[in-house]
Computed example of a mutant assay.
Amino acid sequence: MKKQINNSRWKAVLMSISNDELDENDRPQTIRKKKRDIFYQDIGITAQEKFLSKQDKTEVVRRIKVRWDKTITEKDSGIQIDSIDYNIERIYTNVDTREMELSLSYVN
C-alpha cells in the first residue's frame, strides 16, 4: 500500500517584486516579474488569522503551504494563482517538516 507524501498538487507562480522603475510622472512603479513555478497545497483560513489580519489593516483571503524556501520573503516576493496576484502578508516556517505556510492578500 502506497502512502502519499506530497500533497502539493497545484501550481502557482512565484513573482519577484521591485520598485526600481519610475513612470512618466517620476513616481515609483511596482514591477512584478516571474521568478519560477512552485507547487502548493491550499489550506484554510482560521478565524484567528482573519482577526489578526484585520488588526494590521490587511485582509488575508488565502493560505497556502509550500516547500521551505529561504528566498521567499514578505517584502520581495509575491504569488500569482490563476492570473490573480497576491501579496505575502505572513510566513510561518515549520523546519521539522521543511514547509512554509504563506498568508496571502489581494494586491491593491
Rank of each mutant, 00 (worst) to 15 (best):
Thr73Ile: 01
Phe39Trp: 10
Ile88Trp: 05
Glu49Val: 13
Asp82Lys: 14
Asp85Phe: 12
Asp20His: 03
Phe39Ile: 00
Val60Gly: 12
Asp23Met: 04
Thr93Trp: 03
Ser8Trp: 07
Leu102Tyr: 03
Gly44Gln: 06
Leu14Glu: 10
Gly78Glu: 13
Gln48Gly: 00
Asn108Phe: 04
Asp69Ser: 12
Ile79Pro: 06
Lys57Val: 00
Arg62Ile: 05
Ile43Glu: 09
Ser53Val: 10
Lys3Phe: 11
Glu59Met: 08
Trp10Ser: 13
Ile91Ala: 13
Lys65Gln: 15
Ala12Cys: 15
Ile88Arg: 08
Ser8Val: 04
Asn25Glu: 12
Lys33Ala: 07
Arg67Leu: 11
Thr58Asp: 08
Lys3Cys: 06
Ser18Pro: 00
Leu14Cys: 05
Asp85Gly: 08
Gln55Thr: 03
Glu59Ala: 07
Ser105Ile: 07
Ile88Pro: 07
Asn6Leu: 08
Asp96Trp: 09
Ser16Gln: 15
Ala47Gly: 00
Asn108Lys: 11
Leu14Met: 06
Gln41Ile: 00
Thr46Pro: 01
Arg62Ser: 06
Lys54Tyr: 06
Ser8Pro: 00
Arg90Tyr: 14
Glu74Arg: 12
Asp85Lys: 08
Thr71Leu: 09
Leu14Val: 10
Ile64Val: 15
Ser103Val: 05
Ser53Tyr: 07
Val61Ala: 08
Gly44Asp: 08
Asn6Ile: 11
Lys54Asn: 07
Ile5Lys: 09
Arg36Leu: 07
Glu99Leu: 10
Ile5Met: 10
Ser18Asn: 07
Gln29Pro: 03
Lys2Val: 03
Ala12Arg: 03
Lys65Trp: 12
Ser53Leu: 08
